[in-house]
Amino acid sequence: MSTDDLFAPPLKVSAQVSELVARHYLKGRHANKHGKVAWVTSGAPVEFLKALNFYLLYPENHAAVCGARKMVVDISSAAEEAGYSREICSYARTDIGAMLSGKTPVGKLPKPDLLVASTNICQTVIHWYRVLAHHFNVPFILIDAPFIYTHASDHAIEFVKRQIEESIPIAEAVAGKSLDEENLQEVVRLSRAAMHLWLEILERCQHHPAPISVFDQFIFMAPIVEMRGDAATVEVYAAIRDLTRKSRSLIG
């Protein structure tokens, strides 16, 4: 029995998500020729980057793709050979290995003009993105998120808001243009629409049996990170939401 047999059959909508992500990586191969590129962590505020027309790459997702294609051992060896310990995060080790060796299952990764990390995912990203900043010699924006135990206090929100505001001039300088308010409003509108759909999908997983597995959730989160603010992302989450409403038709 192969390990593939241990998982549920693929969902009908998986092909749509895979196509969206594949198209995004394909676009990435030529992104450096057509505009500015930002590498971002999952959950980092990307709306102002989107509104400035940055192409966004999500290295954690890239590392997951390397894992799915069974290329992690080969790629992360390049990082280990350069002195990166096996004890550090394997996502980071894989992406640093890809950065040093140029090996990737997606053909080619665009180089970043800007790095944006937020500690709302983990503290490791601070150290990981400092390595990227040192290697690529590009500006690094860190959005520090305070711990929230029950509810976010006003000063915690103000703390994050001010960091985002201070990040905008840095991103504008890299982009070579000013942030257009109207453009930002539209990106935020699409971003909110996609997030609400994604939350609805995740909440549906409280049902027994759950309409999608945790593995599907991990795979489906790529668009909400690097394509948040795109109309196509809203469409794909709407399609997933619609399918989770009729769980019997989920399996293709």
Partner: peptide, 11 residues
């Protein structure tokens, strides 16, 4: 296992 140190070491 000290990540802050281990990440910086190679550079």
């Amino acid at each position: 296992f000290c990540e802050p140190e281990l990440f910086d070491l190679p550079n």
